[in-house]
């Protein structure tokens, strides 16, 4: 298993270093997109956007970028490999297929985390934000990646069947945007409080709440919320692996693996 993780990690590092333009353009576009939103918000409100709201926005945006990358990975890898035909070669592996795509997505997410750290650094520099980077960030970042990759693997399972899922992904990304920016932590009374509790079951919500608490509001580490984030991330990955394996079995039975 360690060899599989190692070889997948080395593969993504080799490809990232071999084609640095992909990394740089992704960084540039992600940063520019936030800056555009930031400038637009200032223009519309006719006032400077700063303080905790700006910090929360940056954290939400960074989480969204990380989540969308995690979401896109498996379905796009399957679509591309179906196009080039290598997908069948991957299915000749002796490893469980969901484990392969999980190892691959997690390895690629490490590169994404590097990109996000640089992006947040640039955003802090150009907006004057004061988000914090405590060590405890590692946990919600990991659980956010797990849940996003899990969601992506469910889409990947669909991609095994239909191959073309590129058109579906943007609408899911927009739904994630809603999840990442909704301030569930402020829904503390009445019906809103109940909805906020239910939202903890949605993918990545506890992780992004924990991120905001640590980075934007400077709150101390909340072990209860952390536990929810872990359960959320692990739960979505486990569920997605089951779905992925069921779909892999189905496509091998129906002869749909070689299509594109």
């Amino acid at each position: 298993m360690l060899s599989l993780i190692s070889v997948e990690f080395r593969r993504i590092i080799a490809l990232t270093l071999r084609y640095p333009a992909n990394f740089i353009s992704s960084l540039f576009i992600s940063t520019l997109m936030f800056y555009g939103l930031f400038m637009g918000a200032q223009y519309l409100s006719n006032q400077q956007v700063f303080g905790k709201n700006l910090d929360a926005m940056i954290v939400g945006y960074a989480a969204w970028v990380l989540a969308t990358k995690g979401l896109n990975k498996t379905p796009m890898a399957i679509q591309n490999e179906a196009d080039t035909g290598v997908l069948e070669s991957i299915f000749l592996s002796s490893y469980n297929k969901s484990v392969i795509f999980l190892a691959r997505a997690l390895s690629e997410s490490l590169v994404d985390i590097v990109l996000i750290v640089i992006m947040v650094g640039v955003l802090v520099w150009i907006t004057g934000s004061q988000v914090e980077f405590p060590l405890a960030l590692a946990l919600p970042t990991a659980t956010l990646v797990l849940a996003a990759v899990g969601l992506g693997m469910t889409m990947g399972a669909l991609a095994l069947q239909v191959k073309r899922v590129g058109a579906m992904l943007p609408s899911l990304q927009m739904m994630l945007l809603l999840l990442m920016f909704t301030p569930f932590e402020t829904w503390t009374t009445g019906l809103a409080s109940g909805l906020a509790s239910l939202a903890m079951w949605l993918p990545m919500v506890p992780s992004v709440l924990l991120l905001r608490e640590l980075m934007a509001y400077g709150h101390p580490f909340d072990p209860t919320l952390a536990l929810k984030a872990v359960a959320n991330g692990v739960g979505y990955v486990a569920l997605s692996m089951v779905i992925f394996n069921l779909m892999a079995k189905r496509v091998r039975s129906k002869g749909l693996l070689a299509g594109y």
Partner: peptide, 24 residues
């Protein structure tokens, strides 16, 4: 359909070898 075109000959060999249960 057997090889990754953007990986080197060595990388392909090692990659698929690991996928068949070999250590790195």
């Amino acid at each position: 359909r057997n090889l990754y075109w953007r990986m080197t000959a060595f990388e392909n060999l090692r990659y698929f070898g690991v996928h068949k249960g070999m250590s790195m």
